[in-house]
Design a protein around this nucleic acid. Structure first.
Lengths: 251, 251
DNA sequence: CGATGTGAAATGCTTCACAGCA
DNA sequence: TGCTGTGAAGCATTTCACATCG
């Protein structure tokens, strides 16, 4: 993408394979910030900024500059002292750390408004998320083409999902159907689920599960707006992004 | 701005609160878990469970029981030793802490698939989020009724939003329009924004902003699935819910 | 010089362990 | 007896501060 015409700012010689990435443990909060940095870096690159400082990146992401540096240093050290980070190179490195240097098949179950929004989302394809299968129980919807894919009935799920081991299952059904769909996906061999249905699901502990609840987001805002709105000048402030809930209890 | 008379340190003790609610600081991670407990409690109540232990609630939420107790004890202490928590009462208390004991006007901008999904979401009305206004620039969409509300053009925004001080603005436009919409909402006086557009927005620091990016959720899963999938038996594991990104840097 | 990279300090959250009460 | 509520211990993450190097 955009072979930047001979930019002298780039660190000399060092191309291709960077240092031993992903040897260190990356803290969960950092993992959540990396995609945000991505978004900003892409934007900066589009507007012609080929170098960023931790200061700039931090202020755009509303994150302390030191945190930016620490986050990035966990992936390796590819800044240039005195200058900053090379925008394009940084994007590439973050991509790699996030596992976006490959394609991921995405399977969406529940092709209502939300499912459609997801299936058509621009950002997905751009990052290697390939929507490979869509499912819905509604006979009106089965057979429709959405984002170039035919919607099928979940009964076909096992046949249609190629290698379920890498696939990511997205649940966008009503709450009442969600657990059943999760079970189905897990039975088909899918090991990563992203749940948008407003219900807390139960899955085997070796299945990766993320739960994104649109109404929870409003509830969190409600909390801060109602009784806990942080002081403007202060520093105890709300949130960008989404709240972390970890899992696995020894229980 | 709207300096709401010296509110810091307001001695609470208003109406029938069992304890001085919101006297203590609630950590952000806890705020994220409360709505999850809610979801589970509602489910339990529907199935006739009138009492829960921290153990049960914890295992359903995939959270350590001690964490559940600590979370709940931050809101006051309304468990019964030896028995557990009264389901209905607990729901009520969490509601109150989250500021759900009132109605919140919601304004949605961008009535594509995502906007529609949000406008029609069951869970919203149930929690007092009242969708009061919908906006879109597309002349085909303007005038349509969605969830019982007429879609209008953003030009009318200032007229239509009643008291913008409590309203929560939801941005569900394409990325390219998002910053403009945010500016518009802020200019209209809205002080809480929930951004679903895949772009990091810039708003005045006294505006509450949450950024939920559907593709970021996939990116996070990608990270864990690709190179960092946690060991099944182990305990350093991924995520339920959504990742936290904090705010405000001393800048 | 200016900005990164990073030990070390500070802060905040989670987990433990047990006293206290129904 | 069983389960909550909570100090105190244990970890993790954030922030500081500065040596380091392009």
């Amino acid at each position: 993408m955009v072979a930047s015409g001979g930019d002298p700012g780039t660190p000399g010689g060092r191309d291709g394979a960077p240092r031993g990435t992903s040897r260190r443990r990356i803290p969960e909060p950092t993992v959540g910030r990396l995609p945000v940095y991505q978004r900003i870096l892409e934007e900066l690159l589009r507007s012609g900024t080929t170098t960023v400082s931790s200061d700039l990146l931090g202020s755009l992401a509303r994150v302390n500059a030191a945190k930016v540096r620490k986050d990035l240093s966990l992936l390796g050290s590819f800044g240039t002292r005195g200058a900053g980070y090379d925008t394009a190179y940084l994007i590439e490195q973050i991509d790699r750390e996030l596992g976006l240097d490959r394609e991921w098949p995405i399977v969406i179950v529940g092709i209502g408004n939300l499912g459609r929004a997801l299936a058509q989302a621009q950002g997905f394809a751009a990052r290697g998320f390939r929507v490979t299968a869509l499912f819905d129980v509604d006979p009106e919807i089965v057979g429709q083409h959405v984002a170039g894919v035919v919607v099928r009935h979940p009964d076909d799920l096992t046949d249609v999902v190629g290698d379920p081991t890498d696939a990511m299952g997205v649940i966008a059904t009503p709450a009442s159907a969600a657990q059943g769909v999760a079970d189905l996906l897990v039975a088909a061999g899918v090991r990563s689920l992203l749940n948008f249905a407003p219900r807390v699901l139960s899955v085997p502990s070796d299945v990766l599960l993320r739960y994104v609840d649109l109404s929870i987001e409003l509830q969190i805002m409600s909390f801060y707006q109602s009784r806990h709105r942080p002081r403007a000048g202060g520093d105890r402030m709300p949130v960008i992004g989404t709240v972390g809930l970890s899992r696995r209890d020894p229980g």
